[in-house]
Amino acid sequence: MIERTPLLNLATHLILGFGLIVILAPIWLAFVAATLTLQEVNAAPVELWPGTHLWANLKEAWVLSDFGPKFVNSLIVAVGVVVGKITLACITAFSLVFFAYRGRALIFWMIFITLMLPLEVRIVPTYAVAANALSPFQALLDVTGMGWLINAVSGVQVSLQWNLLNSYTGLILPLVATATGTFLYRQFFLTIPDELVEAARMDGAGPLRFLWDVLIPLSKTNIAALATIMFVYAWNQYLWPLLVITDRATYGMVVVQLSDLVPDQMTTGGGTPTWHLAMAATLMVMVPPIAIVILMQRWFVRGLINTDK
């Protein structure tokens, strides 16, 4: 529908512009703060125009936070989570949509319900499992009396132990299970016409072959969308890495590291707050997620335009 309503257009554009300012202002302030010296950043009133110390601040913040290895860690975890989530979501949805078996709907709804239980809600049990990934099995042995039985028969005390704390596995695995991704994939797979599945069967392609040759190429844009969302999600993880990683020097992630730069009583010890460094570090930490969004956005658009049926 085409309407000519100049006044309404103007009003909508004003609202749009206002929203843009609301969103951009903090980022602008962060950028300005990152370009000032310690004295300038703490002077009142707040400086609104950039200074000259951006490069120096970036360098200082980088060294201070040991960002080199931390960026690598964050990247490993984020990529690990993205790959894990996509793989898991894809094969789970594949099984749910294309195979008929008992309890299919039940399984789907159970996965769906976990949407309501994000990591933060179940962080204590998740931590307990991460501390010993085999503890559920140990509990099973204990409850059923199997452990006692094995002990009585063979004299071996069964004590299962698999510690995930302070490891990439521990960082990645609990973040991988994903209801969102499974749901997204399921909805996409449901749009695949039955005839296509049957054509592949007639062509002699087995289920995995069909998944690999047909479904995955067709779901490229889905993968791009999911990857973007999940990369940003994983990159921004704070609480979980904070808990599970005590060996910060080896496994620290940038976002956790960044929080250390934010001046408070503990970090400055009552000294002048170093906001310029915190903001400089923030700018650097922001770069990868933004880069991914910009990069992947082209995929979305192509996926939306090129809808060949």
Binding site: P193, E195, L196, E198, A199, A200, M202, D203, G204
Partner: peptide, 16 residues
Amino acid sequence: PRERGCAMVFQNYALY
């Protein structure tokens, strides 16, 4: 299906 030696042409073509 693949073992039966049949080929099928579908109503909506079902091309990849």
